[in-house]
Design a binder for these strands. Sequence first.
RNA 1: CGGGGCGUAGCGCAGCCUGGUAGCGCACCAGCUUUGGGAGCUGGCUGUCGGAGGUUCAAAUCCUCUCGCCCCGACCA
Length: 571
Amino acid sequence: MRQSRLLIPTLRDEPGEAEIVSHKLMLRAGLIRKVAAGVYTYLPLGLRVIRKVERIIREELNKAGAQEVLMPIASPAELWQETGRWDFYGKELFRLKDRHERDFCLGPTHEEVITDLVRREVRSYRQLPANFYQIQTKFRDEIRPRFGLMRGREFIMKDAYSFDADEAGAAESYRKMYEAYRAIFTRCGLNFRPVEADAGLIGGSSSHEFMVLAETGEEGIAVCDACDYAANVERAEIQPIAQAAGDNIAEKRLVPTPGKKTVEDVTAFLNVPASQLVKTLLYLADGKPVAILVRGDHVVNEIKVKKLLGAVDLAMADPAAVETLTGAPVGFAGPIGLSGVTLLADLSVKDVTHAVVGGNAADRHWVDVSPARDVPLARYADLRNAMAGDPCPRCATPLRIVRGIEVGHVFMLGTKYSEKMKATYLDQQGQEKFIVMGCYGIGVGRTAASSIEQNHDAKGIIWPAPIAPFHVHLLPLMDKSGKVMPATLALEAELEKKGLDVLVDDRDERPGVKFNDADLIGIPYQIVIGEKGLTQSQIELKERRTGTVTKFAPADIALRVAELVQPILQA
RNA sequence: CGGGGCGUAGCGCAGCCUGGUAGCGCACCAGCUUUGGGAGCUGGCUGUCGGAGGUUCAAAUCCUCUCGCCCCGACCA
């Protein structure tokens, strides 16, 4: 492919709108251009990367027995009303009306549409199991789109849905997808880790996220270095840390803390560590007031709270409600003397000695509080996010917290959708049963973006060969003799014959420009063809990642490059 | 949704406070020279100063409204 015939608008300057490296480099290397907030056009180079990722996905899913379909972008409200998600999904669901004023939405995911298909077409256990997937553009009207393809409103997603006769079959489908995902992300050249995740309100028994490990990740992952355990911090179970019993014999006292509202303020003022303070956070769970006690250095995990209470909606109480409930302005809420409120406390609170809590009065805190003695009515449970140093729930080794980008997610759905939408089949005994489902997603653009997060240097992108837009970049330099371009084109033809994707920089540019653009675009192998080299029968091969330059005879180079690239592609 | 910031040439920005001919660098076009890591010289093109309204003899600049974009927050009391 001739570079002069492709739109690859590289930028020397960093566009101001980009924050993270993958976004900057995608713009600078001419992969994408923004059309609106969170909405992008894929330029030729970007699209080639997307297609490579899609191809790997297709190959692995087909191998796992899934079948490809393509569902519509717009779907009618009725389907979403059946499952209740029309109301539940909120503002993220992009809604529109057709000319007859009928409600539609742009699909943020397709459980309803596929379940509707299956309930119409699948009658018998003989048709199960089945697994349908599609690679489709999705639309979610995100609160805050950011980071380019990492969190767009419109994005390309592979979604798959499995249908089984029973739980055991569903578990097997889930396992197959889990393995397919491992294969897909491995082939994409990513450093990733499957982690236990929360199934959230989608429900179901099991869920894993596939996390690409990267500093810029939006998710926190708790990992154990001693065993295999890894989980989203939202999900990670926390074992209570055994603590030496404190000598908390002192009677609690109310002390003035003028204007000290935050954990930082109070702990600095009283000169105690944050772990000695117990925060009292007021929530409304389905409209009912709840106070949640966690240590000052801990973070409440709303997912765990919701589960414990069986609540659908959980939101922090607004300042006015806090005042009504506690009788004090925000910043001074405490568990002592609080009435009409459900009291929940994280397990770690029980062990705090000489605790500091809010006084339920302006500018007052209690000190020398013993939660077990002074807050006897609290119900204790695991209610916080995991932190670095918490014991692994499997082997008790201290956990490490790392950042990750969620590129894939697998869910066991069970019969949540099939029951609501009456997707049933007849089993061998002629009994009508609900189909057991699973669903599985991969963010295609996000996968490409996270690859850049993991593979780049100061010069630009360093694509892993399997998802690189091209495998080889030919850089013919000055051609006064007229021999360079013919040699280049001959080499291009030879490489293409060996099945490699080749980009030829045939532009009339100075060498420096070509080198810099090549490094920016990040094709894994660069071949420099220059007048000097040709007279000495030499052609240079440069590996983008290491910068290593090797010289070959023109007759050998195609074979040598093919030897380097082909094994990677077949991996 | 709350707070902050920014919209001036394709990209990066100055000019705005203190109203008076719309600028700089890169990119782009032409010519000459140059050619192994973002060339030099000469000449050229490019803007409804995000939009609407207002104040004024005069608005990129001041005022009002509006649209778009970016960042932070939207659990840590």
